[in-house]
């Protein structure tokens, strides 16, 4: 394990940040990871994949006695500690929420942490103190939207995009990256990219999440409301940060309800596009509804 006081110059370059992908980014959301890495490279940052990462558990346990459910997240925090690092950045909104909440949960009570540490045989004890960040926080608070604006090579002029936050970036308040009912971080980012962000009332509403497995009809209803509202606001694209929202909004958009579906992109795809990342690294081919016809009309691809 590297010495925290004498870090190696490779892992501790300030622009090289440990990154937690999670299952979706290696599966149905490869476009999210690919575009994020390319965009961050254009901004001078490297997202360095965390060694030996494991599933975060996807949903945070809300029970007081379910310590076992925090084991997965804590193991990932131990991996960060092993690198001698103190920060972990995530892209998936669900991973962000689960890791950030578990980190706070064990940090708040030494007894909980002691029990989890006692259970882990292979790993060193987790000492606490790893900060879990979402990429949007890094972009807003460290890179800065002015800096991003200055690096835009292809302004997304006239692209009308509805930012869709969903739940896990915003709630609960203690881990929310923005105001839970009136977030603006995605709007500010899209403005910096030259696009036209649109406000719509459903931007922080739940898509139905994992009910897509147990009760898809509920999700179809939710998606109809969210997509209709975005359409009414004049959206040509919906942009999100959650692979499950993205899946639900794509899969449960009813073609019967409206003949032309709205493309649902990851916010990093728009970021990468505006920063001049080549088209083959934007992951547009991996989406169900290809945004390229729209973007080529605007001479962006």
């Amino acid at each position: 394990m590297p010495d925290a006081k004498n870090p190696s110059p490779i892992t501790h370059h300030p622009s090289r940040i440990p990154y937690f992908p999670g299952c979706a980014l290696k599966d149905q959301a490869e476009a999210f990871e690919e575009s994020a890495r390319a965009a961050m490279a254009a901004l001078g940052y490297e997202l360095a994949e965390l060694p030996r990462w494991n599933c975060c558990g996807t949903v945070y346990s809300l029970a007081t006695d379910d310590l076992m459910r925090h084991l997965g997240p804590v193991r990932n925090l131990v991996r960060v500690q092993e690198l001698g690092e103190t920060r972990l950045v995530t892209l998936c909104a669900m991973c962000y929420n689960t890791l950030a909440r578990s980190s706070r949960f064990v940090g708040a009570d030494p007894e909980r942490l002691e029990r989890i540490n006692a259970f882990m045989d292979e790993e060193a004890d987790y000492r606490g103190g790893v900060e879990v960040l979402h990429l949007l926080q890094l972009l807003r608070d460290e890179v800065g939207f002015e800096e991003i604006e200055a690096k835009v090579k292809k302004p997304l002029a006239g692209v009308r995009v509805a930012p869709y936050y969903g739940c896990m970036l915003l709630r609960p308040r203690e881990v929310g990256i923005d105001a839970p009912d009136s977030p603006e971080v995605l709007e500010a980012l899209f403005s910096a990219l030259g696009a036209e962000p649109l406000d719509f009332p459903q931007k922080a509403e739940c898509c139905g999440a994992y009910q897509t497995v147990s009760d898809p009809e509920i999700v179809r209803e939710r998606v109809r409301e969210i997509v209709s509202a975005a359409r009414r606001a004049g959206a040509e694209l919906i942009a999100t940060s959650c692979p499950l929202c993205q899946f639900n909004l794509e899969t449960h958009q009813s073609v019967a309800h409206h003949p032309s579906p709205i493309t649902v992109v990851y916010f990093t795809q728009l970021l990468a596009l505006a920063l001049g990342v080549p088209e083959d690294k934007l992951g547009f081919a991996g989406l169900k509804f290809d945004p390229r016809p729209l973007l080529s009309e605007r001479e962006l691809v």
Binding site: Y210, P243, L244
Partner: peptide, 22 residues
């Protein structure tokens, strides 16, 4: 969760979430 009624093609993120909650 009724296993037999799980729709085909749901991604891992949804399956893990549903099984953990339900």
């Amino acid at each position: 969760l009724r296993w037999a009624e799980i729709p085909p093609g749901v991604p891992q993120i949804a399956l893990v979430g549903a099984t953990r909650k339900l």
